[in-house]
Each structure stands twice: as structure tokens, then as C-alpha cells.
């Protein structure tokens, strides 16, 4: 873990000695304690959902941190033949299985790791003795802006998020912590990359068949608004649409993650 910080100082990555064991207390203080509460999900029965108190990483998992992980757990190193769990394109933005790369176009060690499947994200959090946040946990903490725990009634809050989509994705991605920090002290929830959550597909997949559920009606065209709790929350629509387009084995270029844990 400490190697990760060293990596920020020196661009050379190969040969960096890494601890093979999960980090200790240091990583825990990097988490924000979130007080539980109620919120109305974009899709649901319109009733508020109760979310228990939890802790969540202030920052997204970086390339350097994920590098530590694959060094320690070799079966998660990029392979010639990616497994179903890694997904096509797993860590493709790295120069090699154990090399993030260097140069102007290379991925930055301090940037969020992307091109990771849900399986890989889960395995990482597990290694850190944490877990992925639930969709409700993520949405609850993402209601906040710099000064308020719930900024959803502020049109400027939504517009700011939408402005993010108006900008092309920077290549390579900038460092974590470079976009925003909300009142909980959690960074980059909006403005850097999409994030995996534990139950990313829970909203739409209701059974064996997508057709039997509310999938079609909710996601497409005007039907998307008919069942939503807030038809003006375009930023949330984009998030839900993104999540429901995913499968657990996808490794996508603008999709990263952070870990969470139950309240201490």
C-alpha cells in the first residue's frame, strides 16, 4: 500500500516492492463514516428506503492500489486469455500484466482504475477486507454536494453533474480527488468515472426473463419517466441506464469502483 504512494512520486513502476498482505489501519482512516438515513430511489415504489450507517472509501481505487492487489493475488493478473470473470479488455489500459506504464498517454498510477469487471472489483474489496457498496448506499452518499447532505432539490447540483457528460473523457484519466469532494468527505462521486455497486443490476432484472419484469417499460423512451420518482433527475437516469447496460463480466474504460464496509 505504501508503495502506492511511492509510485506517485516516481513514475517508474516496474520492480516496485509491494507488500503482499492487505493494509492495516491506514486504509481504514481513508474511509468516511456515513450516517444512515432515508432516501427515495429513482426507481422503486416511490417510498423512501432505509439505509443503515456504513463506511465508504473517500477515494476511488487507483491503478497503483489495484497494482498492489494483482501483485499480491496473481490470479487477478491480466492474462493472454482473459477469463469470464475478468472480462474482455480487462486492465487493457495498462502496459502489461504487472506494468501500469509510463509516458504521456499511459495510465496514471494515481488515477482511478478502470477496465475492471464487477468480479474483479469485488475480489479487490474482499482482499481489503471490505465489500462493494450497495446501490442504495452509493446513491445515499451521492445525494450530497459540498455543503449539504441532500442537494437533490438544487437544480445547479444536477446541472453540474450533467456538465460532466458534456466534456469528453480525458485520456488518460486524471488523479482521484481531482473533481469534487462532498460534505461527507467522499470524493469524485460525480465527475470522474462510473462506479460498480454490489447490486448494480437489481433494479431491472426481476427474474429469469427480462421481458417479464419492468425492464422495458422503465428504461426506454417515455416509459423511463413513467415509473421514475423524479422525472427531472437526468443525472440519476444516466447512472441507472449505465448500470443496467452492464454485465458482471464487462471491463469498461470509464467504470471504476470504491469499497465500503459496515459501520465500525
Amino acid at each position: 500500500m505504501r508503495c502506492g504512494s511511492a509510485l506517485l512520486a516516481v513514475a517508474a513502476l516496474v520492480g516496485c516492492a509491494v507488500q503482499a498482505s492487505p493494509p492495516g489501519e491506514g486504509a481504514k482512516t481513508a474511509m468516511a463514516a456515513i450516517e444512515g438515513g432515508r432516501y427515495v430511489p429513482l426507481y422503486g415504489d416511490g417510498e423512501p428506503v432505509e439505509v443503515a450507517s456504513f463506511r465508504i472509501d473517500r477515494g476511488l481505487v487507483t491503478n497503483a492500489q489495484f497494482f498492489d492487489f494483482v501483485r499480491a493475488v496473481p490470479r487477478w493478473q491480466r492474462a493472454e486469455e482473459p477469463s469470464l470473470l475478468m472480462g474482455e479488455g480487462y486492465l487493457r489500459h495498462w502496459a502489461g500484466p504487472l506494468e501500469i506504464g509510463s509516458g504521456a498517454k499511459a495510465a496514471r498510477p494515481d488515477a482511478p482504475v478502470t477496465h475492471v469487471s464487477w468480479f474483479a472489483a469485488r475480489a479487490y474489496c474482499d482482499w481489503r477486507e471490505k465489500r462493494l457498496p450497495s446501490l442504495d448506499e452509493w446513491e445515499l452518499v451521492a445525494l450530497a454536494d459540498e455543503s449539504s447532505r441532500d442537494a437533490t432539490d438544487d437544480p445547479a447540483f444536477h446541472q453540474k453533474i450533467l456538465d460532466w457528460y458534456a466534456r469528453p473523457r480525458p485520456d488518460p484519466l486524471p488523479p482521484v480527488g481531482s473533481t469534487s469532494r462532498n460534505v461527507w468527505g467522499v470524493e469524485d462521486l460525480h465527475g470522474l468515472v462510473w462506479e460498480w455497486v454490489e447490486d448494480f443490476n437489481s433494479v431491472f432484472v426481476t427474474g429469469e426473463s427480462r421481458a417479464d419484469g419492468t425492464f422495458d417499460r422503465q428504461l426506454y423512451c417515455a416509459g423511463a419517466a413513467a415509473t421514475a420518482s423524479d422525472a427531472r433527475n437526468y443525472a440519476a437516469f444516466l447512472r441507472y441506464a449505465m448500470r443496467s447496460s452492464l454485465q458482471a463480466g464487462y471491463a469498461v474504460g470509464n467504470l471504476g469502483f470504491r469499497c465500503a464496509a459496515d459501520a465500525a
Binding site: 457528460y165 422495458d216 426506454y220 470509464n254
Partner: peptide, 27 residues
């Protein structure tokens, strides 16, 4: 950055292809 799909008004079928064509980036 986001998923997309296509609804062609020339299609006879639910959603005009919307459900069948829904894809994440890189798919």
C-alpha cells in the same frame, strides 16, 4: 461515456429495437 441503443421507426416490434440494441461502452 454512456450506454446507448436504437429505436428505428421502420421496425415492427416492441421498442423498435431499443431493448435488443442496448449496449454499454465497448459492447
Amino acid at each position: 461515456t454512456v450506454p446507448h441503443n436504437i429505436d428505428l421507426h421502420a421496425v415492427t416490434g416492441p421498442g423498435g429495437g431499443a431493448t435488443s440494441s442496448f449496449v454499454a461502452p465497448g459492447q
